[in-house]
Amino acid sequence: MVERGSGVAVWRQIGEQLAEDIRNKLYAPGERLPTEPELAAKFTVNRHTIRRAMSELEQLGLVRIEQGRGTFVQEHAIDYAIGRRTRFSENLLNQGVLGYIEVVACQSLRAGDIAAHLGLARTASLLRVQAQGKAEDRCIDVSEHYFDEARFPDFAEQVRERRSISRAFAHYGVTDYTRQWSRITAALPTPEVARLLGQPKTRPILQVESLNVDGNGTPLQYSLTRFGGDLVQLVVASDTP
């Protein structure tokens, strides 16, 4: 299966064989690969060699490694539309994927620049909700959302219960809102964002900074959303209703 003394590292030969198997569809998108012990036995190598090969495949974006679950073939990127009405769950449902929001943490804070985006005094109390956007059970984004705490005092609890920002807004009587602007950049993730996305720190992400407003044009929500660069393809939609 591998040729020792060929001048090509054994771990690289294993990685190339597994990459070829993935490209030839021997393993389907989302399928879990054999475990490290199984692959070590198959190629007659130690687990460290298998781990090195898997790390290379992860760097190439062919697999994702989930701690405690195993190594999975990377799925195709999801088209995520950004337009006048950007809705996480609807974006995914349009592609036959169940999408939902999971709250990671929340806190009260003061941040003058963000308060200014929300049309508030720089000393206003803000609510920051940190969340993961899930497609089925796969995390495709890590986000921070900021709200006027006086207007939405228990927004995090509403999102936890409803697993949707839109449905949480509806709880407060906000039945519709629109995207005033979005700013898209590429960046490297922080260690924490990389951990939550389940990707290497060296793989770029797509970052979307945005502001949503209500029907009167009053700012509702300032957000920073970081998408896995190989998990999501951002599609900028026209501004039609």
Score class of each variant (00 low, 15 high):
V2A: 01
R4Y: 10
S6A: 09
S6I: 01
S6K: 07
G7W: 05
G7Q: 08
G7T: 05
V8H: 00
G15W: 11
A19W: 03
R23Q: 08
K25M: 02
L26F: 09
A28Q: 13
G30I: 06
R32E: 08
R32S: 06
P37A: 02
P37V: 02
E38F: 00
A41G: 13
A41V: 03
N46E: 11
H48G: 14
I50S: 01
R51N: 12
R51W: 07
E56S: 13
L57I: 13
Q59D: 15
L60Y: 07
V63G: 09
R64Y: 11
R64S: 07
E66S: 12
Q67E: 15
R69G: 09
G70M: 05
G70D: 07
F72Y: 15
Q74S: 14
Q74P: 01
H76V: 09
A77W: 09
Y80R: 07
Y80F: 15
Y80N: 09
G83I: 12
R84K: 15
R84G: 14
R85K: 14
T86C: 08
T86I: 08
F88V: 08
S89H: 12
S89D: 15
L93G: 00
N94F: 05
Q95E: 10
G99Q: 10
G99Y: 11
G99S: 11
Y100A: 04
I101C: 04
V104A: 10
C106T: 14
Q107N: 12
S108N: 15
L109T: 11
D113R: 13
D113V: 10
I114R: 07
A116I: 09
H117V: 06
L120F: 08
A121H: 15
A124N: 04
A124K: 05
V129H: 07
Q130N: 10
A131L: 08
Q132A: 10
G133D: 11
K134E: 00
A135G: 08
E136R: 11
C139M: 00
E144V: 01
H145E: 05
Y146S: 00
D148Y: 01
E149F: 06
A150P: 01
F152C: 03
P153D: 07
P153I: 03
F155D: 02
F155N: 01
F155W: 04
A156S: 10
E157C: 02
Q158H: 13
V159G: 03
E161S: 05
S164A: 06
I165G: 00
I165R: 02
S166G: 11
S166P: 01
R167P: 01
V174Y: 06
T175F: 08
D176R: 06
D176S: 13
Q180D: 10
R183Y: 14
A186G: 11
A186H: 12
A187H: 12
A187M: 13
P189S: 10
E192I: 12
A194G: 09
R195C: 09
L196E: 13
Q199P: 04
P200S: 11
I205P: 09
L206A: 14
L206R: 15
L206W: 10
V208M: 12
E209H: 14
N212I: 00
D214G: 07
G215S: 12
G217L: 07
T218D: 14
T218Y: 01
P219K: 03
P219T: 06
L220R: 03
Q221M: 13
Y222D: 02
S223I: 03
G228C: 05
G228F: 00
G229C: 01
D230R: 14
Q233K: 13
L234F: 00
L234M: 02
V235E: 05
V235L: 08
V236F: 06
A237L: 00
